[in-house]
Design a protein around this nucleic acid. Structure first.
Lengths: 351, 351
DNA sequence: ACAACTCATGTAAAGGTTTACAGCGTCGAT
DNA sequence: ATCGACGCTGTAAACCTTTACATGAGTTGT
C-alpha cells in the first residue's frame, strides 16, 4: 500500500486559476480551444501547484493508455536491441511509451503479455520475429477483436497481421551468390531453429542460389541449428567431421557464424583461408570479430521505426489495412570470406 | 480515436452472477473474503462474458499502476540485457511489468522518464549505471517525494538511493593483481567515460593494485576512454605508440578490451603472447571472442533480481530504508592473459 | 433591433474500479 | 429469549479526467 501522496488535481488548478475544471482540461489537451489569457493563468496555476496529470484517470476516461507492448523472444539477443531503439525513438515521437515483454520463446508468456491489450493497459503491440502469441488458442482471440498489431520480420501464418521486414530469401540467395562468385563450389548452410519461419526462408534462398550457380549438393550440406553461438559451433563440427567438408558456410545468423568460426579455429583451420563463413543480420559484434564477419545487413533501426509508424496508424484507425513494408538489405563483405584455397582439396581424405 | 470495444465490466459480471459489484471486485482482489459458492458463480460468469479487468480503472482507484520504469543508458549495450532479464523475471513474479526507458545518456530524456513517477504511470524506478535523472534540477525533486527508486551498480551522489552492485574497486584490484601475478610489471589501464562513477572506482582499484604490487607507474599508463570498442581501440593505439608500451592492459570494460585487442592485432601483436588484456563485466561475447577474454564477472541476473526485490519492498513501504546490497564478483581467467614474454624486457629502455 | 451564428466557458455525466461503512443472518453464550 | 460477535454481502462514495451539451456574450447581416 503506497502512502497516498497528496498531489494537486485539475480541480485544484481550476480553483486557483478561477476557471472551471473543464477549461483546465481543455487548456492542456485541446490546443486552440482556450483563450490565450486563460491558458496563461492556468499554466501559471499548474506550475505553482506543481501539478501533473493523472495518467490513469486520463486513460480510464479516454480508453487509451499511450503504451504499446513489444514482444521479444530474448532481450539478450543483440539483433533486437537496435530494432528496439528504432521502435522506441519513433514511439517517443508519437508520445507513446513502450512496454517490453521478453517471452524467452515461451508462448505461454507471450499470451500473458498479449493480454495487456485486453486489459486496456496497452493500445497496440509489436511482434518481433519468432514470438507468436497466437500459436495456440489466442489466434482465434486476436483476430476478431482487431487489435492493432504489427509484426517485424515475420509473417504470422493465418493471422493477417501487417509486417515490416526484408526479403530473406533474396538476401540469402545473394549471400550464397557472393560465396559462389569467390569460386566456392562446396557451400554448406547452417540453419536457424526449425520452428522459425525465417529459418526456412533463408534456407530456401540458399537452395535457390546453389541451384542457380550449379554448386555441389550433398545430403549433409544443410545442417539444422538454432540462433546461437553454441548451435553454430556444433553444426560446424558435424560439417568438418564429414568425409568431404565444405570450403564455405552460409550461416543463418551472425551468432551461428561466430560459433562456426570458433569451431573451425579450434581445429586449426584459418578463416577465411581454409574456410569462408557468411553470417546474417550484421549485429554490432560482426564488425569487431576476428575475422570481421561478411554478412547481410538488415536496416534494423529503420525496421523498428517503420513498424512503429504503422502501428501508430493502426491505433488511430484499427480497421484500415496496412500494406507490408519490405526494406532493402545489404551485402556486407568483410574478412571472413575469400576465394577457396586451390590446394584445399587435399584435406578431403580420412574416413 | 480507437473504436470503442464493447467489453464486459464488473457490473455485467455482477448482474450475471446475481451479486453486487463489490462482491465481484472482492472475489478477484481479496482472496478469502467471498464465500466459495459465490466465488465459483462469479468466476463462471466472468468466463462466460469473457471479462477482463480494466487496469486503468483499477490504477485510478488504487493509486498504483503495477508498472516500474527501468532507466538504461543504452539498450544496445550487452551488459544490460541480462540485468534486464533478472529485473523482468522478478518483476513478473511480483505481478509487475517493466517499462524500459533508453536515455541514450541524455539526462533530459531521463528526466522525461522519471516524470512517469509523477504522473502515477509507474510505481517505482530502477536506475542502471550511468543514468542519473537527477543530475540537474531533478535531484531536488526526487528526494522530497520519496519515490521508490533503487540504483544498480552506481551510488548516486547526494541522493540517498538504495543500490545493489559489486565492489568495483576491489574487483579491479583483483584483476590487476592477476596480471601482476603472471609477472607483468608494466600494466596500463584504459578507463571508462570520465563522468561515470564506475570509471573512477575501477581506476582507484587499479591504482591500489599497482601500488600494492610495486608495479611500474608512468604518466601515460592511465588512458581516458569510454565504454566502447572504438574508444578502447583508440586508447590502445596511444599506449602502443608510446616509447615504452605496457605488457598488459586492464580495460574498464569488455568492450574496451575488445577494442584494445583489435588494435593490437592490427599492429601484428599477438594476444596474449605480446600483450595481455583484461576486461571487466564478462558480457556474453567475452567468452566467444578470440582470444577468449579474461575478465571480471558480475552476477548480472542476480543484481537485477535483487534490485527488483528491493524496489518491491520500497513500493510496499516507501519510508523504510533499504540497505545496500554488495554481491560477489568473480575473476574469470581465459585466454587473453598470459605471462609476459621474457624478451619483452628489451623494450623497456629509452627515455 | 433582432435573428442567426460563432466562440469561449461552464455543468454534469460518464468511465470501471476499490473500499469504508452499514446491514443482516447465524451462532454461541448467558 | 437476548446479546455480542462474526462473516458475508450490499450501498455508495471516491479516484481524476474527458467530453457532450448547455449557456451566455459578442458579432454579423438584414
Amino acid at each position: 500500500m503506497p502512502t497516498r501522496r497528496s498531489t494537486a488535481t485539475m480541480k485544484d488548478v481550476a480553483l486557483r486559476a478561477r476557471v472551471s475544471l473543464a477549461t483546465v482540461s481543455r487548456a492542456f489537451a485541446v490546443p486552440g480551444s482556450v483563450s490565450e489569457a486563460l491558458t496563461q493563468r492556468i499554466i501559471a496555476a499548474a506550475r505553482e501547484l506543481n501539478y501533473t496529470i493523472n495518467v490513469n484517470a486520463r486513460s480510464l476516461r479516454s480508453q487509451s493508455s499511450g503504451l504499446i507492448v513489444v514482444l521479444i523472444p530474448d532481450i539478450g539477443n543483440p539483433f533486437f536491441s537496435v530494432l528496439l531503439q528504432g521502435i522506441e525513438e519513433q514511439a517517443r515521437a508519437q508520445g507513446l511509451a513502450i512496454l517490453i515483454g521478453d517471452t524467452h520463446g515461451d508462448s505461454e508468456l507471450a499470451a500473458t503479455y498479449a493480454r495487456l491489450l485486453d486489459t486496456r493497459r496497452a493500445d497496440g503491440m509489436i511482434l518481433l520475429n519468432g514470438t507468436v502469441p497466437n500459436r495456440a488458442h489466442d489466434g482465434a482471440r486476436l483476430k476478431p477483436q482487431r487489435y492493432p498489431v504489427v509484426a517485424i520480420s515475420e509473417r504470422i501464418p493465418g493471422a493477417d497481421i501487417a509486417m515490416v521486414g526484408i526479403n530473406n530469401r533474396a538476401a540469402s540467395c545473394e549471400a550464397v551468390g557472393h560465396l559462389a562468385a569467390l569460386g566456392h563450389r562446396r557451400i554448406a548452410h547452417i540453419m536457424g531453429p526449425a520452428d522459425n519461419i525465417l529459418t526456412h526462408e533463408r534456407a530456401q534462398g540458399y537452395r535457390d542460389s546453389i541451384l542457380a550457380h550449379g554448386c555441389d549438393m550433398w545430403p549433409e550440406a544443410v545442417q539444422p541449428g538454432a540462433f546461437s553461438i553454441h548451435a553454430g559451433r556444433a553444426a560446424m563440427a558435424k560439417l568438418l567431421d564429414s568425409a568431404a567438408p565444405p570450403t564455405a558456410v552460409f550461416a543463418a545468423s551472425d551468432e551461428i557464424a561466430i560459433g562456426a568460426i570458433i569451431e573451425a579455429k579450434a581445429r586449426g583451420l584459418l578463416v577465411p583461408d581454409d574456410l569462408s563463413v557468411m553470417g546474417f543480420d550484421d549485429i554490432a559484434y560482426a564488425e569487431s570479430y576476428d575475422p570481421a564477419l561478411s554478412t547481410i545487413n538488415q536496416p534494423r533501426r529503420e525496421m523498428g521505426r517503420r513498424a512503429m509508424v504503422m502501428l501508430g496508424a493502426l491505433i488511430a484507425d484499427p480497421d484500415q489495412r496496412q500494406a507490408d513494408v519490405i526494406l532493402d538489405h545489404r551485402l556486407v563483405v568483410r574478412a571472413s570470406t575469400a576465394p577457396p584455397r586451390v590446394a584445399s582439396r587435399k584435406l578431403t581424405s580420412r574416413t
